[in-house]
Design a protein around this nucleic acid. Structure first.
Lengths: 161, 161
DNA sequence: TTGATTTGGTTTCATATGTAACTAATATCG
DNA sequence: CGATATTAGTTACATATGAAACCAAATCAA
């Protein structure tokens, strides 16, 4: 590759030439995602004392009440240890209630406590608002394109080794 | 909010309704980025025994020889502790050479050793190839749109609180 | 100058995280 | 049934990470 629009090199996209990190998709994604989630995480933490994993769990239990830890892990793209710890913390701070499933006593069904639900009702609009601000400068076609690209790239990366 | 295209609700995008995590941009970005970088990181680790930070440093020093740790931190979007540790490891394994800058003896200039350069020459094509595979299913217009959206979102998030 | 401040980089310490081992309950197969 | 395998979730351990303290060199200010 040649540096953006510098002098034409004899080779097209020379594999041995320096890589421009700032043009490299995995890097760009990492930078964007870190900015987005660190800012959002700071807001969760500041206002509700929640980590990202805890927030995801709140969001999932809010939408799918009486779900289980393993379902949360799946839906939240979290590993089961993270889920287990975050649930423990949410239960300890009284925002989540665990009820062992009598039909299968290995499972525990999770539901929001009143306190948890109050957090949920405040944090969801906050999250939506943050997303809205993030997307505010994009035109409707851009939103659609973004949606499509994210789907497409995510599907694609899942196929890769 | 109402589930995608279900029955029309009287309110538009009710802020108190459940959030669909799988439609929430920060979440989607996190999932995509984690997949992308964990797969790539696995490849670095498997083949070259490099962490993501180390790989970024290699990429930066390859492109900007004789740079310093703080410049790397900036260019690589890494914090200075991470940079310090990764440099130490790369120096310890003989892939990077540190020379204290005589003009300012707090600084150290970093350059690739022969071994480091050999890694560099092998890993850059690997990285490019991974990116190529990732983007292989996108049409040229999509690539352009993706580029624009990433720039735009990254600029936008930097403005946010 | 020399004392105070800033800067480049490292170390410390406390916490977060992931892998693997583990426990308990259920499911499967002879 | 009863032995074995599987699944849900937790715990232990080793490593990664980040904030803050730290050190040394350079710069600033009197």
């Amino acid at each position: 590759m040649k540096p953006n629009q510098a002098a034409a090199a004899p080779t097209t996209d020379d594999d041995a030439a320096p890589l421009q990190l700032e043009r490299f998709l995995p890097y760009r994604l990492a930078v964007l995602t870190n900015l987005v989630s660190s800012k959002l995480a700071a807001a969760y933490a500041r206002q509700f004392n929640l980590t990202v994993a805890e927030w995801r769990i709140i969001a999932i239990v809010g939408r799918f009440p009486n779900t289980t830890a393993s379902e949360i892990a799946e839906r939240g793209a979290l590993d089961k240890v993270a889920v287990s710890r975050a649930i423990a913390s949410l239960v300890a701070t009284g925002r989540l209630v665990r009820v062992i499933d009598p039909a299968d006593r290995r499972r525990a069904r999770l539901a929001m406590s009143t306190a948890g639900y109050n957090v949920y009702r405040k944090i969801v609009p906050l999250a939506r608002d943050y997303e809205r601000q993030l997307l505010a400068t994009l035109a409707p076609e851009d939103l659609q394109a973004l949606d499509r690209l994210l789907e497409s790239l995510t599907a694609r990366v899942r196929q890769l080794p």
